[in-house]
Amino acid sequence: MPSHADALASFIDSAPPGELSNVTAALKNLSVDDAGSLKPAYKKYNEEQLTTVKLPGGSQLVIVSKYNELEDGRYYDIEARTSWAFDHATQKASAVQTYVHESSHEDLVNSLYKALAAHASEHYPSSSIGVFPIENDSKIALVTVANKYSPNNYWNGRWRSVYVFTPAPSPSLTGSINVDVHYYEDGNVRLLTSKPLTFSVAGSPSAADVLKQIAQAERRYQEELHRGFTSLSENAFKSLRRQLPVTRQKVEWEKIGGYRVGQDIGGGRQR
């Protein structure tokens, strides 16, 4: 039997895009007061979901992820040149300070940021991005998150792309895309997708080369996902239940009621 804390952590872990505060409110109202023990669950959720936050006094959204966490638990953004403290349970930022991240890849990070920003503005109507040196400056993480929340119409969605680029000595690029859509009008429907990506890179790729690969992979994935919808609809869904019987007529219940199992109904198998 999992402990209460494990149960609560699993609830937070599966909170849909934009609905963490609703999940938190429901848990509080169930008088499960475990706020202290839930801290790691909230942190994991925010970092994995690439939670975006508006800094006090700012207008732009910045990302919270494991890639831009500082040693003291604060987070930073290269473009905004700031760092901030983050309350994981309430998803609020505070104590904003000027912060410049030291990196031997400063130029590369900047050009990757510009290229990713250009790519994002071409394909995401609304998104936030971040480019961060990681693992002792040996790799660079490129993250994109696009959210669209429409709680008045009972749906919310999130697209996440994460790539890790190793510039040298042997260049490599890996990544993953995750899509999460929730629809909850008189029901609860969830689309969850996950796709790991591997790339082959040769020579010493430029920022433009890296983004070209990313753009290609994202387009291919989105097309594949469209085919996935069609295939589930045409195959699995159709073979579960017909829209009408083979006869293209609704059941004649008057006949079923009176007769035994129905050869008169047509198509019915006798037992």
């Binding site: 503005s121 394909h123 109507p125 669209k148 969605g157 919808f229």
Partner: peptide
């Protein structure tokens, strides 16, 4: 399943350059 959910994916990311 096959209309709304798919549309939301299209709202998040556009295959055609914006």
């Amino acid at each position: 399943y096959f209309g709304k959910a798919k549309d939301v994916v299209g709202d998040l990311r556009s295959i055609q350059p914006l």
